[in-house]
Amino acid sequence: MLKNLDVLTLAFCFGICCCSQFLVFYLHYRTNASVRGPGWWTASSLSLVCGFLVNFFRDIALVKQVVVVLYGMSFVLSFSFIYMGIARFKERDVHRFGVLTINVGTLVVLLYTVVFNDSIPVRRTTISIACSGHVRQRGVNSGVLEVALGQAALGGIWAGCASFGWVLSSAMASTCM
């Protein structure tokens, strides 16, 4: 069943999910423009869609490093926007310093890992820590956690399937040699 499923297919499916999510949030925002929050959720989905689109250029050597940073930051910005949307929805203050610190810190680490130390595990861990940092912002933990868990579940399913496909293809390649 999974022999024809590869990472590119999974990435494409993830992109379709992001585009669908963006459309739903945008329509929700347009129908309830007076409610504070859904506009930020729309921006969150748009950030994921942009990351998905940018990822198509990852194989071009000239822009690969820029694409890697933009793709990673799209996830972190997405969680920032979710946090801000829920804070606005719950009529709470947005802790701008915390958001700025997490985003700039992540950008610095991503730039370091792309320029000096090309380490995918360090990049993925940095992005995960940054996203969880937004989930832990004061005052809106409950709402951010549910939305973040939903997106993380989607990402986890995607990563799990990608990992399984990689392991499966590696095992099949080693038996064919």
Rank of each mutant, 00 (worst) to 15 (best):
A171H: 09
A43Y: 09
S44K: 03
M84Q: 15
V135Y: 09
G139V: 13
F12M: 11
F52D: 07
L10V: 11
Q151C: 04
F25Y: 08
A173V: 04
G51L: 11
Q21Y: 12
V54Y: 10
S132E: 02
I157C: 02
V68D: 00
F97P: 00
I60K: 04
C176Y: 11
K90D: 13
R36H: 15
L111T: 10
T125V: 12
S142L: 13
C50Y: 06
M177A: 06
V76W: 01
W40Q: 09
S170W: 11
S170L: 07
F22E: 00
F52K: 01
G51M: 10
V115S: 11
F116P: 00
A173L: 08
S128A: 15
V66L: 13
P38L: 06
S74I: 02
A11C: 10
I16G: 02
V66N: 06
N32V: 12
V135L: 13
S174G: 01
H28L: 14
F57E: 06
D6S: 10
S74V: 00
S119D: 10
R123T: 03
F75T: 01
T9G: 02
L27K: 05
A152Y: 14
F52T: 05
W166E: 04
V68N: 03
L23K: 03
F116R: 11
N55R: 09
M172P: 00
R92G: 07
C18A: 14
C19S: 11
G15D: 09
G37M: 03
L145T: 14
L5G: 02
E91W: 08
D6E: 13
K3F: 08
I60D: 03
G37F: 08
I129Y: 08
S78Y: 02
R123W: 04
G105W: 13
G133S: 05
K64F: 01
A130Y: 05
V104H: 09
S45W: 05
G139F: 09
R58W: 06
L145K: 08
S119G: 03
T101R: 09
V109A: 13
M177L: 13
F81N: 12
R138M: 06
K90R: 14
C17Q: 03
I129R: 03
G139S: 08
T9H: 13
R124A: 15
D93M: 07
S34H: 12
Q151S: 06
G85Q: 11
D93H: 05
S45H: 04
T42N: 04
V122C: 10
V76N: 00
E146R: 14
K90H: 04
Q137K: 05
F57Q: 08
V54G: 01
T175F: 02
L110Q: 05
T175N: 05
L110N: 03
